[in-house]
Design a protein around this nucleic acid. Structure first.
Lengths: 310, 310
DNA sequence: ATAGATTGGTGCATATAGGCAACAATAGTC
DNA sequence: GACTATTGTTGCCTATATGCACCAATCTAT
């Protein structure tokens, strides 16, 4: 492959009818133009310009070459312009991953406001409860709800809020298998756990007593869950249909509790709080579109969390 | 303006899904690719690639940029290919200037053979008796008929043949004004001279005696011509119509002499021989098309001159 | 004419970019 | 699960390219 810069230099010399004129226009030394064009001719093995001290004329080869050069330089300029446009203002596509329920209940209401404010931005929402690989899956911003914020190199995390997790099960399940008296009883029951709860071969729930008093402490319970999935809705449905006891965010179970589809189990104990947070690649060279959506989410998601339950 | 090579390097990295793979494919050091892409990102102010040690993914900006890069690189390749095609074989346009009469009588017959042999070559013939400026007028090959071969820097000259120049005038002219007895008589007569004969304010004919003997020498005659033109046909017609005495190539006057439109004047004296020659720019980077036409002309024009009179 | 300004090109000192080797990090492998 | 191979990156040294000053040639203008 040849040197593409020489194409640009040659085109400039032709367009401005001379080395000196071109040098002044594009702001480089004329000696550079002279040498680059000479090198180009040498590599091509053809004279592109017939030059006397004063007159400058294209050869046939130069004419042909120049006709294509224009397109090349314009094309390159278009490439630069296209990213410059992304930098000037929020524009282009932003890929956002979010837990399924959050996407359905919060983002669905919050995003329209953002998109109206930034008409040139398109947003792609990937609703998933998986812990997505931000880099490989080309996600610009991931919203995650996990008990701990993982510290991955090259990624930045910002907390949006926290959500209590509580134990629930269906009335039918409790009627049939009884109720646990304490967290230590839980391993005797069928449970539906999150993939994030998995430790070694089993799962672990860290439960904290809500009761004010001496026993305000945490117990780590090892389980052999009957169902494991990262999907909240699946775990909720499992609880509703009597598969087992599930540990779910209180915002998620608020409505089912009200409708008596499930009821609290060990209500004085709660699971480790889920920390809802944003994750995005290091802000080196971050686009305005991504920046603006992060800023928007940092304001609106916590606000939304406070005024409603998910 | 930005660096066009970086576009190529970036496109290569994306196309081959990695720095190392691209480096191997296009034959450069991976370190170079790494540094060039980094520099490109720095100049653009955006991250184009999200890179971990193993995975490589385009950012939104990188995606946009890459979409245009392809076109740019292909366009550049097309530019190089277009001249490479001219170099591979005789092809493209060759611009040829020629004295008018030579073009009409010789080239008209000689060129078809050349063009049949080289179907990809187009020839543009500029028929003119002017001494064209080869460089400014973008002439690839000039055929000239002049007494002396000018040595212009950057141009090469090749002799095709010589043509005697003889003095002619119409019978009517001679009947009316009489005949010169010697070259020294010529200034008394009206004459039609070439632009090339002009010296200072007047014109000069250098006449050489053809007679074998002691007076085989040259006389330089200063004239005040009544008509001056570079066009042979105009001078010939001037002679035929009795404007004055003209000094014309013998091939040019052969037919008119036979038809008795003109007759010889001072037949034992002849003008300085015209040297018919090719002039073309220094063969540094000469195209096959030009080279082949020069070669063809060097063979066929002298041959044509020998077998016929112009 | 003569002088001045401008053209494209060249020699030399320097600044920059590229190549080699080594590096941390990771994926595959036995 | 330790090991190997490969990834992208960085330090250092050299080769290359650039910038400055100057040159011959040429056009312009008084």
């Amino acid at each position: 492959m040849q040197d593409l810069n020489d194409i640009y230099f040659f085109a400039a010399v032709v367009q401005h009818c001379g080395f000196s004129a071109a040098a002044r226009k594009i702001g480089v030394e004329k000696t550079r133009l002279s040498r680059r064009v000479s090198a180009l001719e040498k590599r091509l093995g053809v004279r592109l310009l017939q030059r006397t001290t004063r007159a400058l004329a294209l050869t046939e080869a130069g004419q042909r070459f120049f006709e294509r050069c224009g397109a090349t330089v314009e094309s390159a300029q278009a490439a630069y312009d296209s990213v410059a446009e992304l930098l000037r203002e929020p524009a282009g596509l932003v890929r956002l991953s979010s837990p399924v329920l959050l996407a359905q209940r919060c983002l669905a209401h919050a995003l329209p406001g953002y998109m109206t404010a930034h008409p040139k931005v398109s947003v792609f929402v990937e609703p998933t409860d998986r812990t997505v690989n931000v880099i490989e899956e080309r996600i610009d911003i991931a919203i995650r709800a996990k008990p701990v914020i993982e510290d991955v190199a090259g990624l930045v995390a910002k907390t949006l809020g926290k959500s209590q997790r509580v134990l629930v099960a269906s009335s039918a399940f409790l009627a049939r298998y009884g109720r646990p008296d304490s967290p230590a009883d839980l391993p005797k029951f069928n449970t539906a756990a999150s993939s994030d709860d998995i430790f070694d071969s089993g799962a672990r729930w860290s439960l904290t007593s809500l009761a004010t008093g001496l026993d305000n402490r945490t117990q780590h319970i090892e389980l052999k869950p009957r169902l494991v999935t990262s999907d909240l809705r699946v775990r909720l449905q499992a609880a509703i249909h009597g598969i087992g006891i599930a540990l779910l965010p209180e915002q998620v179970v608020a409505a089912p509790l009200k409708e008596r589809l499930v009821e609290h189990v060990l209500p004085e104990w709660s699971g480790a709080k889920n920390i809802l947070h944003l994750v995005y690649p290091t802000p080196r060279g971050m686009l305005p579109s991504v920046r603006s959506l992060i800023d928007y989410l940092l304001i609106h998601v916590p606000a939304w969390l406070q005024e409603r339950s998910i």
